[in-house]
């Protein structure tokens, strides 16, 4: 999922100004939709909005819906089950509430996934040059750090045929964190020089 997001960010467009305007319009529409959804408390309207969003999402709709359900499953299941037990015990159970909260969460998360599947978010953040700068640099580094952590984890698993002790796992976590800190400090200096050599700070 994260790799796909990175690839979308790297994709170029022939008209960057138009693409930037479109991305900012999508961002504004997304934010307005999210706020509007939180003012709706009728399950029937939330269900209608979810159906409309799914229908409008095009061919990617089922993949997005699957991602959405997987993303919210654990938290919503815990809250819903906890609510059902406690409210039933207290004699205040409301099926309408359960339907409403789950529909709202699914709709909001679906809108988020739909938005990021359609829009180059770094372009959408282009209203602030500094924010776009920092976000672009950070996203590049995040990709590197994600790979490092995965490599560390796989190496640790391969070195420990049985479950490692608490102290070993603590040392391993500390080694990962120390490596990331090192890489951040030196990476910042490298990036500064690279940006300077390309004239990023000249104007």
């Amino acid at each position: 999922m994260k790799t796909q997001a990175m690839q979308r960010l790297a994709a170029s467009s022939p008209k960057p100004h138009d693409a930037g305007r479109a991305a900012r319009a999508w961002l504004a529409a997304y934010l307005a939709s999210v706020v509007a959804v939180t003012f709706v408390h009728q399950p029937v309207w939330l269900a209608a909005a979810l159906a409309a969003a799914v229908a409008a999402a095009g061919p990617a709709r089922w993949g997005l819906l699957r991602r959405t359900v997987l993303a919210v499953l654990a938290f919503n299941l815990a809250v819903s089950a906890g609510y059902a037990v406690i409210a039933w015990w207290q004699g205040r159970y409301s099926g309408q509430y359960l339907l409403m909260i789950n529909l709202r969460v699914v709709l909001l998360v679906f809108l988020g996934f739909w938005f990021i599947s359609r829009v180059n978010v770094l372009r959408a953040l282009g209203f602030s040059r500094t924010l776009a700068f920092v976000a672009t640099l950070a996203v590049g580094q995040i990709g590197t750090f994600t790979r490092i952590i995965r490599d560390f984890r796989l190496a640790f698993v391969s070195r420990n045929p049985v479950r490692a002790s608490l102290m070993s796992r603590g040392r391993h976590a500390a080694a990962q964190a120390g490596h990331l800190l090192d890489k951040s400090v030196y990476g910042a200096a490298d990036t500064a020089m690279a940006m300077r050599s390309r004239g990023c700070f000249d104007d």
Binding site: F133, V134, L137, A138, Q141, S184, A188, T191, A192, M195
Partner: peptide
């Protein structure tokens, strides 16, 4: 700018 990005 790079430091903030690196820390992020």
């Amino acid at each position: 700018v790079p430091k903030l990005a690196a820390m992020t």
